[in-house]
Deep mutational scan, measured.
Amino acid sequence: SHFELRVGTITLHFDNISEELAEELEKLAKNGVHADEIRRWWEEWLK
């Protein structure tokens, strides 16, 4: 499923992401983690 995450002024787009993972990314964003860090985390997870 597709997921969009708003982090400050940036909107990150994720394809084929589980609800659980989407929730984890939302938690990171709410805790003030920068969009670049979240994207890096996601790319690492995909490997």
Results as ranks from 00 to 15, higher is better:
Ser1Trp: 07
Ser1Glu: 08
Ser1Val: 12
Ser1Asn: 14
Ser1Arg: 12
Ser1Asp: 08
His2Asn: 05
His2Gln: 06
His2Pro: 04
His2Val: 04
His2Met: 05
Phe3Leu: 09
Phe3Trp: 13
Phe3Tyr: 06
Phe3Val: 03
Phe3Asp: 01
Phe3Arg: 01
Glu4Asp: 03
Glu4His: 06
Glu4Met: 03
Glu4Arg: 03
Glu4Phe: 08
Leu5Ala: 01
Leu5Thr: 01
Leu5Glu: 00
Arg6Ser: 12
Arg6Ala: 09
Arg6Lys: 15
Val7Ala: 03
Val7Asn: 01
Val7Ser: 02
Val7Lys: 00
Val7Arg: 00
Val7His: 01
Gly8Pro: 00
Gly8Ser: 01
Gly8Phe: 07
Thr9Asn: 15
Thr9Gly: 14
Ile10Asp: 07
Ile10Gly: 03
Ile10Lys: 03
Thr11Tyr: 06
Leu12Gln: 00
His13Thr: 11
His13Ile: 14
Phe14Ala: 01
Phe14Asn: 00
Phe14Cys: 03
Phe14Lys: 00
Phe14Arg: 01
Asp15Met: 11
Asp15His: 15
Asp15Glu: 10
Asp15Asn: 11
Asn16His: 06
Asn16Thr: 04
Asn16Ser: 06
Asn16Phe: 08
Asn16Cys: 05
Ile17Asn: 01
Ile17Gly: 01
Ile17His: 01
Ile17Asp: 01
Ile17Tyr: 02
Ser18Ile: 03
Ser18Thr: 13
Glu19Thr: 13
Glu19Leu: 13
Glu19Pro: 14
Glu20Met: 06
Glu20Ile: 09
Glu20Cys: 06
Glu20Tyr: 09
Glu20Asp: 10
Leu21Thr: 09
Leu21Ser: 05
Leu21Gln: 09
Leu21Asp: 06
Leu21Phe: 06
Leu21Lys: 05
Ala22Asp: 01
Ala22Trp: 09
Ala22His: 04
Glu23His: 15
Glu24Gly: 05
Glu24Tyr: 14
Glu24Ser: 10
Glu24Leu: 10
Glu24Thr: 13
Glu24Ile: 12
Leu25Asp: 00
Leu25Trp: 02
Leu25Cys: 02
Glu26Asp: 10
Glu26Gly: 11
Glu26Phe: 14
Lys27Cys: 10
Lys27Tyr: 11
Lys27Gly: 09
Lys27Ala: 13
Lys27Asn: 11
Leu28Met: 15
Leu28Pro: 00
Leu28Thr: 02
Leu28Arg: 04
Leu28Glu: 01
Ala29Val: 10
Ala29Tyr: 04
Ala29Pro: 02
Lys30Cys: 06
Lys30Arg: 11
Asn31Lys: 12
Asn31Arg: 15
Asn31Ala: 12
Asn31Pro: 06
Asn31Glu: 10
Asn31Gly: 10
Gly32Tyr: 06
Gly32Met: 08
Gly32Cys: 05
Val33Ser: 11
Val33Leu: 15
Val33Glu: 07
Val33Ile: 11
His34Ile: 10
Ala35Lys: 02
Ala35Gly: 05
Ala35Arg: 02
Ala35Trp: 07
Asp36Pro: 07
Asp36Phe: 09
Asp36Met: 10
Asp36Ile: 07
Glu37Met: 12
Glu37Asp: 12
Glu37Pro: 03
Glu37Gly: 10
Glu37Trp: 12
Glu37Cys: 07
Ile38Lys: 01
Ile38Ser: 02
Ile38Thr: 02
Ile38Trp: 10
Arg39Tyr: 13
Arg39Asn: 07
Arg39Gly: 05
Arg39Ser: 08
Arg40Ile: 08
Arg40Leu: 11
Arg40Trp: 08
Arg40His: 09
Arg40Asn: 08
Arg40Gly: 07
Trp41Asn: 04
Trp41Gly: 02
Trp42Tyr: 14
Trp42Glu: 01
Trp42Cys: 07
Glu43Phe: 15
Glu43Arg: 15
Glu43Asn: 14
Glu44Met: 15
Glu44Cys: 10
Glu44Trp: 15
Glu44Ile: 13
Trp45Ile: 06
Trp45Gln: 08
Trp45His: 08
Leu46Val: 12
Leu46Cys: 10
Leu46Trp: 10
Leu46Arg: 12
Lys47Leu: 12
Lys47Thr: 09
Lys47Ala: 11
